[in-house]
Design a binder for these strands. Structure first.
Length: 605
DNA sequence: ATTCAAGGCCAT
DNA sequence: ATGGCCTTGAAT
């Protein structure tokens, strides 16, 4: 406090490294010498000279030669370091902080598609904030207690991100040169520098070879770090989790960060507009690749994400868990404090307690920003890539949601993986379909003239089911308008799917999984005053969605076998169940897949 | 002792 | 309300 005056006055060498250097000389050269992620410099500069294939040098490439990430992914201004999960400029950092801390609510006066760049970023805070989220800034990183200094639990991700950036650059410079490929010219889409480092799936790094030992060491240290992190909520059952994770590592179960095991092993937290009257989109099928693709969520990231500035969902009011304390900031079910207590979990079994389904509502992810998140994937070169990347993005959230769910987090890693693998497609279909029905998603997804029907996204690209999807979608809307399908039913369906160990994909034999599911059905029936769950009005919807998902899964699996999903490691991992017999038959890795399958998104007329 | 991301301060 | 610069402080 008193020192303030002194420190400010004296340009001593002390204090914050980054800031001192930048303030020293705000000249142009500072841009190069002050790169926050120290250590990357040499490589960056080399590549500026050596790298970059001729064909890609056109225009902008020349200007940003030094680093491929010197520009803020939100507004394009100069990056000043990692802020809330992303390399951004100082202004967006401040903007994001103020918005979250003050729980500001913005409203776009236009159509929510304002461009956000250095010159007009002040014009529409609503679109700016949405873009911040879409690009990956994490509200969880804004401290509720406003404590200064120190490090947070994301530190290791920043580190990993740096390492990956480095590898990326090296691979561009190194032999084989521009595997950046992207023959289409949309190269940047394959190297989304703005992808959040906290999104564990980060780029598909498989081919950026990192040997196993390095990987293991990394995972272990990340684990230890997370375990010790003060910001890591409760931390109770984490020792066991860490042990499990390490055991996975030791068994060589974790080939890369994009695997389900890796995600389960780590402990990051993340989470996740018009009624639709679609034209059947079977016609899209041909244009979209010979066959459709796609999925959603991953290491936390994904989806489940931010609930923040939104009022707590209505139905959860009756439950005990407190997400609505006056002091509580923005994120309702944010990972930060979601670790359920034993007591909470017990309530799911005691019949004389609150209705199970109602109690579970507080654990539902918030998908209010789902549209924004998917919107910014519009630069993907093809419909397939759009669907796949969107699905993988959501997959991360899904997995994190699962591991934070009551009871689920008490299962062994094997059981968890099995249940997640068995349910993700179903839950993806449900999430997208319900989001569309609730008008959280528009009838078509995309931007800049390229769109795909939301239903096709829900179906992971399986256009053959378009008609069936339209039918169930209409049915859902009807039920909703009759108040026969609401958040309670959606919660029940989602959890019932998660705890479905009889889906044919998983192989969990944990008896408690059955009890939980039974408890969910019972609570659901009670909630709807039905004799049993099969008599609930929305039951048919559940059954139909499960069946549709089943077909989507098969479709995806075929795509996988034909080698079309190679770039999506997490997706692949989520499809290949108990491992090995299929693994060998499935192509694994290839530089960011590209290609032949790409067809342009269909312009909407 | 050094890093560096998070919060604070304050001129615009 | 912005955004540049400064202070913090856990992790390295």
């Amino acid at each position: 406090m008193e020192e303030r005056g002194i420190e400010r006055g004296s340009p001593t060498s002390g204090g914050g490294g980054a800031s001192s250097s930048s303030s020293a000389s705000p000249t142009v050269t500072a841009t190069v010498t002050t790169s926050p992620p120290g250590g990357l410099l040499d490589i960056k500069m080399e590549m500026g000279v050596v790298g970059l294939p001729q064909q890609m040098i056109p225009s902008q490439q020349l200007q940003r030669s030094p680093v491929d990430s010197e520009l803020c992914p939100v507004c394009g201004d100069k990056v000043s370091g990692y802020h809330y999960g992303l390399l951004t400029c100082e202004s967006c950092k401040g903007f994001f902080k103020r918005t979250v801390q003050n729980k500001k609510q913005y409203q776009c006066s236009a159509d929510k598609t304002c461009t956000v760049d250095k010159t007009c970023r002040k014009r529409c805070p609503s679109c700016r904030f949405n873009k911040c989220l879409a690009q990956g800034m994490k509200m969880e990183a804004v401290r509720e207690d406003r404590m200064r200094g120190g490090r947070n639990k994301f530190g290791s991700y920043y580190k990993r991100d740096r390492a990956q950036r480095m590898q990326r650059m090296q691979s561009r410079v190194g032999p084989g040169g521009p595997l950046v490929g992207a023959g289409s010219g949309t190269g940047s889409a394959f190297f989304p520098t703005q992808q959040s480092p906290m999104d564990a799936h980060v780029t598909s790094s498989t081919h950026y070879v990192m040997d196993m030992q390095q990987m293991e060491a990394k995972l272990k240290s990340e684990y230890n770090q997370l375990l010790q992190s003060p910001t890591l909520s409760s931390s109770t059952g984490n020792a066991a989790a860490a042990a499990q994770a390490q055991s996975f590592v030791q068994r060589g179960y974790v080939p890369n960060c994009e695997s389900l095991a890796a995600i389960l092993g780590s402990s990051i937290d993340y989470s996740y507009q018009h009624p639709v009257k679609h034209e059947p989109f079977s016609d899209y099928q041909d244009q979209f690749i010979s066959q459709p693709p796609l999925p959603d969520y991953a290491s936390f990231t994904p989806q489940i994400q931010y609930a923040h500035m939104v009022p707590v969902p209505p139905l959860s009011s009756s439950s005990s868990a407190g997400s609505g304390n006056g002091s509580t900031r923005s994120s309702p079910q944010l990972p930060m404090c979601t670790q359920p207590t034993e007591k909470t979990i017990d309530t799911f079994y005691s019949k004389n307690t609150h209705n199970t389904v109602v109690a579970l509502m507080q654990y539902m992810p918030n998908d209010d920003h789902i549209a924004q998140r998917l919107l910014y994937l519009h630069d993907r070169p093809s419909a397939t890539e759009y669907i796949m990347s969107g699905a993988e993005e959501l997959l991360n959230d899904f997995i994190n949601w699962g591991r934070e769910s009551p009871y689920f987090n008490k299962l062994s890693n094997e059981d968890q993986m099995s249940l997640l693998r068995g349910s993700w497609v179903t839950i993806h279909v449900m999430d997208i379909t319900f989001a569309a029905a609730l008008q959280k998603l528009p009838p078509d997804l995309g931007r800049g003239g390229k769109f795909i029907p939301t239903g096709l996204f829900a179906l992971l690209g399986n256009g053959k089911l378009a008609g069936a999807w339209e039918a169930i979608f209409n049915r859902i809307q009807l039920l909703m308008s009759d108040c026969q399908l609401d958040g309670t039913d959606i919660t029940a369906m989602r959890f019932a799917s998660l705890f479905d160990d009889d889906s044919g994909y998983g192989r969990s034999s944990n008896a408690l999984v059955h009890s939980v599911r039974a408890s969910i059905f019972q609570g659901w029936a009670e909630r709807r005053s039905a004799a049993d769950h099969t008599s609930i009005p929305a039951w048919g919807v559940y059954v139909t969605l499960v069946q549709l998902a089943q077909q989507c899964r098969e479709y995806l699996f075929d795509e996988l076998r034909s080698g079309k999903l190679m770039a999506y490691n997490l997706l692949r991992d989520m499809l290949v169940m108990n491992s090995n017999h299929l693994t060998t038959a499935i192509p694994t890795s290839r530089p960011h897949a590209i290609s032949i399958y790409e067809s342009e998104l269909v312009p909407v007329t």
